[in-house]
């Protein structure tokens, strides 16, 4: 849908700041995500990436600044607010209940019930259907999450974000514990979702993943915007120097620890 690219952004952050007691985690962040676009969010450790995700998903609301949804300012104070807008999140720490089974985790907070009684059959049916259409194998959907491997849990967390047909997907390091084949499958899926008109914010440390699916790259450094690049016209070196601070846009030069880009 080429026409939609030009229209107003699905989500826009204007001057968003967030402080944790002594630490200024985010300062005057500006970010726009359009429908049908994948924006990669990159930055060194402690750049504020996960904090930004929590601001948008309602887990840690901002202290200052405006969040706009389709051009209108909105308040996202709780996770429920984000969900009602159509924002779904895969957190870096997954945030799932180890004691509940796969079906219960997928539907946690939006259980299907009839007359106040959980409809386990319907929830399990939809789970199996979803796994089937995404051609994902989970040995037993009634197994408590504690019995699944790290990769399988990550897959469950990702599928959970697809339930309820979101309009904006926030993925915080979604490929961290996935194998090569699963990673490629996820990247294909992200492209498919973008083509369906979803907005995607992808946090990743992996430059080749970003090159493969992202349209634009937003760089965070020490809690500030440090550049916005078009993936197709920017070299990897340019992005990396922006991440490490070799090309500072926002903050003054300061001694930088010798860190190796993974």
């Amino acid at each position: 849908m080429p026409g939609q690219r030009q229209s107003q952004p699905l989500l826009a952050l204007r001057g968003v700041s967030k402080r944790f007691s002594a630490v200024q985690a985010l300062v005057d962040i500006e970010l726009e995500i359009r429908a049908g676009e994948v924006v990669a969010l990159v930055g060194d450790n402690a750049a504020g990436k996960s904090t930004l995700v929590k601001v948008i998903s309602g887990v840690g609301p901002p202290d200052k600044g405006v969040i706009e949804w389709q051009g209108a300012p909105v308040q996202i104070r709780r996770p429920q607010d984000a969900r009602l807008l159509g924002i779904a999140t895969v957190y870096q720490d997954l945030a799932m209940c180890e004691n509940l089974d796969v079906v219960a985790n997928l539907f946690l907070g939006r259980e299907i019930h009839r007359f106040g009684v959980l409809d386990e059959v319907e929830m399990e049916r939809r789970t199996r259907e979803l796994l089937h259409t995404l051609s994902i194998r989970i040995p037993d959907v009634r197994m408590p999450l504690a019995g699944l491997s790290g990769g399988q849990r990550q897959v469950v967390a990702i599928i959970r974000s697809f339930l309820g047909s979101p309009r904006l997907l926030l993925l915080d390091e979604p490929t961290a514990s996935l194998g090569i084949q699963q990673t490629n499958q996820l990247l294909d899926l992200i492209e498919e979702l973008r083509d369906q008109g979803l907005g995607v914010l992808l946090i990743s440390h992996n430059m080749s993943d970003i090159k493969a699916v992202a349209d634009r790259v937003a760089v965070l450094r020490l809690g500030r915007n440090n550049g916005l690049f078009d993936v197709n016209t920017t070299s990897q070196e340019q992005i990396i120097s922006s991440i490490t601070g070799a090309a500072d846009h926002a903050v003054a030069h300061r001694p930088h620890p010798e860190e190796v880009w993974p």
Binding site: S57, C97, G116, L118
Partner: peptide, 24 residues
């Protein structure tokens, strides 16, 4: 075992933060 409320009680025992982020 059979109501959304009970599911939320069990979810809290499995992870308070996870439950909160799921909208409980």
């Amino acid at each position: 075992r059979r109501t959304p409320y009970g599911r939320q009680v069990l979810a809290l025992g499995g992870g308070v933060e996870a439950a909160r982020r799921a909208g409980v």
